Amino acid sequence: MSIQHFRVALIPFFAAFCLPVFAHPETLVKVKDAEDQLGARVGYIELDLNSGKILESFRPEERFPMMSTFKVLLCGAVLSRVDAGQEQLGRRIHYSQNDLVEYSPVTEKHLTDGMTVRELCSAAITMSDNTAANLLLTTIGGPKELTAFLHNMGDHVTRLDRWEPELNEAIPNDERDTTMPAAMATTLRKLLTGELLTLASRQQLIDWMEADKVAGPLLRSALPAGWFIADKSGAGERGSRGIIAALGPDGKPSRIVVIYTTGSQATMDERNRQIAEIGASLIKHW
């Protein structure tokens, strides 16, 4: 067993022997301040990774656009098919120029040779490549099948209805392509620590998230040296922004954090800054 596999296998073990965790309302004060600064709703939840206990939450059962955070769930569904012998990570998928959609920095470079399922998941999570996500959605049967996968996990809230990039439209009061912070946090925890996926697939999923290259201005910008984070960000229309993450000190994750916002007129930089400040408060009061 590799060191990384050992780390993920012992996530519940280490967490069980940690000192009790206590909620700190100071972080919620910052979440509410972010709402004021952005002029928009902000949803927040913080779960203990081992027990699933909610440590703090704000608007945990209000719907927010998922945006690209759905790509972690998508690759979880792909990995479940791999575990069941219905898919192979090494299978190569070929596609054409007509398949390319807006923001496809990886797939646009491989029109000639195609990409493997493993490479597509890596591109979808680490670079948020939209064509990679659409190609992977095709392998599982489309958005409705991802929703069905989530329902089978016990998540009857999260739903995907459309493809990239239309799913980022974020129309107010439109339930399409949305989740709730509580539902997303619980589902992410199941994917990373539950028995739904094999140990190898859980490790692969967290490795992809740990290698995320496009979430630097968010929670990662607030992390002290030595902290662990595996995350996936999302951005959408109407001032929408979000991030889902597993993080913790001492090089291992111990909490799940989900943050979503929508309806702001603020710039992307300002949305990023507010999420980073929430992260800084979380870490300060850990």
Rank of each mutant, 00 (worst) to 15 (best):
G236R: 06
K232M: 15
T178H: 13
L191S: 08
A182Q: 10
E46T: 05
I45F: 12
P25R: 09
E26S: 10
A183Q: 09
G90M: 02
Q86T: 09
E56N: 01
S221I: 00
M153C: 13
A182T: 10
A84H: 08
E35T: 03
G43Q: 04
P217L: 06
I140H: 14
G216S: 10
A124G: 09
G194F: 03
H285C: 05
T131G: 13
A124V: 09
I259H: 10
V72T: 11
E35K: 04
P181T: 12
A185I: 03
P217R: 09
V72G: 06
K232N: 15
T112S: 11
F70P: 07
T27Q: 08
Q203S: 11
L28D: 05
C75N: 09
G154C: 15
F64T: 12
G154D: 10
V82E: 07
F64M: 09
R189P: 11
P172Q: 04
M268W: 05
A200R: 09
D129H: 15
D33Q: 05
E61Q: 09
T179V: 10
W227C: 04
D269P: 11
R162A: 11
K109I: 08
K71W: 11
Q37Y: 10
L100D: 13
E270M: 13
M127C: 02
T139H: 00
A200N: 03
G251V: 01
R255S: 06
V72S: 04
I140C: 13
L205M: 09
N152T: 10
T139K: 14
K144A: 10
E270V: 09
E145A: 09
A225H: 08
T198C: 10
R238T: 06
I244H: 11
H110N: 03
Q274I: 01
E270Y: 15
A77Q: 09
T107K: 01
R41D: 12
E164G: 11
G226Y: 12
G216Y: 09
L247Y: 08
G142C: 05
S264T: 05
N98M: 01
I45W: 01
L73C: 09
T69F: 04
F70K: 02
G194Q: 01
R91F: 03
E46A: 15
G216C: 02
F70E: 04
N272W: 04
S240V: 11
K232V: 14
G242M: 05
I140M: 15
S104F: 00
E210F: 08
T138C: 13
L167A: 10
A225L: 00
A246D: 09
P25Y: 00
S80A: 08
H156W: 01
R202Y: 12
T131S: 13
H151C: 08
K71C: 04
E195I: 15
Y103S: 00
N98S: 02
E166S: 11
S96A: 07
K109R: 14
A170S: 02
L191D: 06
A183I: 02
A133N: 02
T261G: 05
D33L: 05
L49I: 15
S122N: 11
I206A: 14
D155E: 15
A77F: 08
H94L: 13
R189F: 12
D48A: 04
L55M: 04
R202W: 08
T116V: 07
Q204F: 09
G52I: 01
T27S: 09
G39I: 01
T198P: 06
I45P: 05
M268T: 11
P60H: 04
M127P: 03
D33C: 06
L100N: 09
D161L: 00
R202G: 11
A211H: 01
Q97N: 08
M115R: 00
W286I: 04
D99Y: 13
A200D: 00
A225N: 07
S201C: 15
R220N: 15
R81K: 02
G263W: 08
D36N: 05
G154P: 05
T178K: 14
I229K: 06
L196E: 05
G242Y: 15
W208K: 04
S221Y: 12
S281Y: 10
W286N: 13
G279D: 13
T138W: 10
L167F: 03
L136D: 04
G234A: 07
M66F: 06
R162Q: 13
A266E: 03
V42C: 00
Y260H: 01
G85C: 01
L247M: 08
M67T: 10
A182Y: 06
L47P: 04
A123G: 00
